[in-house]
Design a protein around this nucleic acid. Structure first.
Lengths: 249, 249
DNA sequence: CTGGTTTTTACACCGTTTTGACACCGCCAT
DNA sequence: ATGGCGGTGTCAAAACGGTGTAAAAACCAG
């Protein structure tokens, strides 16, 4: 990936600002990618896999908030939001959706650079590999960027909740997720007790994704605990390295 | 570390602001620690090991910048800097020294909270790295993250209680656990007298995990006391007390 | 209004947990 | 030795609760 030259993706519709950012950032040793619309921005984020994204909230086609949400569905790349609006609620919304920082225009270049360095520092510290944009196991394929799901080469249509549930399982593929965990991530922390939901939707997912829903190959029930998405290399999995590894710091 | 209630350390010399922060933050479910000087702040950071630090730059005894530097010498706890000064160079200095965010007074509480959440998010993500915790002894392998158990390369399905019991033994591998201890950890402190439970389940575990359940290699009975999970390196070592070893059946 | 989606409700089924009964072994006192 | 005794292992029936299934009702956006 980014060895020497970190890549920054600038999503900004106003040409003057975009050009200004391009020159200053590339002058600071960044590889710069540009997009002037939300759609192009999302596409380029997936295609070029930048190290950091600078995102203007005021885009012509899609709300910047929405762009943040879409990005966070599949990646943890640092996002720094730029905005002309200084409303507190905008900041809260963007930050809570997963943005890493929020600057209001006009902003100083030095400050932007410093905040970018801080964001990159975080990413470097936690970098657990860029979350893969396409997950595959057996015949099942989930494209987190395009929000498409395939069984074999056949696309499957999922409802919003079905898709959300599936992405949660994908992001934790192989691990067991408790009912509460799934309910919190999909329906929000207020519904952690509605255990029915999960069963109903798991059944629907199985009906759509499994060849034989009665004997699921992917969506595994862990009775009394929750569910798990089976990964490709199931039983033959080798021991990682040492008998016991503590969680790394 | 932080179980339910995240702890925030507020380092701020002006009493009104400090009190204001204390009430709002504790109202938001934080455990709040306070310091009014840099020195006290550094001491408390070390002593209480908070999840996040809110640091005012204008302190009487030491520069806030210096506090940041000192903290970063030994910890990566998120630091959010508050300052009355809006100079760009101050922000750059603080951020480049390792501060995670920088707010200028006056600031909105909502924004502060959102930025704190963002900072905690980062910390959580780098904290919970992909450390696979796998316990191994002989042919037996227990993956505590995925909640999977293998004998050889064959996965074994365990019921919730069976698995819970096994994890308690794993966490105390090699040590003897009394019946009461096991009952308390698995069934809860109300059932510490139902010693029968342990026997029934120990049998089921042996049936699933041991090659020859009648002569267990892993799940050892310590008669009159409880049970013990044998660890890898202990097979060679025979009972230290008696030089004569009994004929094995 | 309509079609798709989400939420509820109801019920049959099956695995798990609990419970009870009994065989076994080693030890001690008779 | 022998018989009792406490701790242990074995087995399986019964009670329990989680899970899968289906479909109706409520909801919502076009």
């Amino acid at each position: 990936m980014s060895a020497q030259e970190p890549t920054v993706l600038v999503i900004e519709d106003e040409a003057p600002i975009r050009h200004f950012l391009r020159t200053t950032l590339s002058g600071q040793g960044f590889q710069v990618a540009e997009a002037s619309t939300a759609e192009d921005g999302l596409a380029q984020a997936a295609a070029r896999n930048p190290d950091i994204i600078v995102l203007d909230l005021g885009l012509p086609d899609l709300d910047g908030i929405e762009v943040t949400r879409r990005l966070r569905e599949w990646t943890a790349i640092p996002i720094i939001v730029l905005s002309a609006r200084n409303q507190e609620q905008d900041k809260v919304a963007a930050l809570d959706l997963g943005a890493d920082d929020y600057l209001t225009k006009p902003f100083g270049v030095k400050e932007l650079m410093a905040r970018m360095r801080a964001a990159l520092r975080h990413a470097a510290r936690s970098d657990a590999g860029p979350g893969e944009a396409v997950f595959t196991t057996g015949e099942l394929r989930v494209d987190l960027v395009r929000r498409q799901v395939f069984v074999g080469d056949q696309e499957v249509h999922l409802t919003p909740i079905e898709y959300k549930l599936l992405t949660v399982l994908v992001r934790n593929a192989g691990k067991v997720l408790t009912h509460r965990q799934l309910l919190k991530d999909v329906w929000g922390p207020l519904h952690v007790d509605e255990a029915h939901y999960v069963r109903v939707y798991m059944r629907q997912l199985r009906a759509k994704l499994e060849a034989n829903p009665a004997h699921p190959r992917y969506l595994i029930t862990e009775i009394g605990v929750g569910y798990r998405l089976r990964t490709e290399d199931e039983d033959k999995e080798q021991r990682p390295s040492s008998p016991i590894q503590k969680p790394s710091r």
